[in-house]
Amino acid sequence: MATEKQITKIGNDFFKTRFVAHHFATADQEFDACKFGMWMFLLTEIMLFGGLFVAWVVYRLWYPETFKHCAQLMDWKLGLVNTCILILSSLTMSLAIRAVKMSDKKTAVKMMLATVLCGAGFLIVKYFEYSHKFHLGIFPGANFSFDGEHYSNAHHFFSLYFVMTGTHVLHVIIGMTAILWCSYRAARGHFYKDYYTPVELTGMYWHLVELIWIFLFPMFYLIK
């Protein structure tokens, strides 16, 4: 079925030729629409997390002592490690996008897999953090059974911590899945200099995931 018309050769690599969807006039129109759509989707993500951020700010201002005290129970070293991992993953992701734009199939796949590895590293660190908290009896909400010194409203801090980082972890997992899918398609030669929309959009999503963590880290670990 693969006729010459459906194969593009760039350098030594072969790529699957992309056709513009029927309702778009040009490739640029399609790309712009997709990118704009993604920006709007990221906007909804920002608003969605925004609700949680508002809850955090309201409770931080209502219960300052509680929050200061609770922040001291957080392990900033693990948080720092995770921040660096995510920054690194953002770097690899933007290098992957760069490679795709230059029709460099091998580097693109490698960089995307490196990004997924970073994501996995983030999840592993988070696993240890969570399990240590659970070990201390720090559960979200009604199961909060911490035996150390704490304020009576400490469960608010940790509920928000678990919900916000939990939602973030969910986004990390979704992002990793999307990147894996992109790397699979990139390896099959679906992306090249004229068509790389999915990689670009996935990259934007991944950067947003990092952006949110950049704020979560100081909010729960550093601010005292």
Binding site: R18, V20, A25, A27, D28, K101, D194, Y195
Partner: peptide
């Protein structure tokens, strides 16, 4: 019916 992708913009 489909147009070939030929991005006009410089990536």
């Amino acid at each position: 019916d489909h147009h070939l992708v030929e991005a006009q913009h410089e990536p």
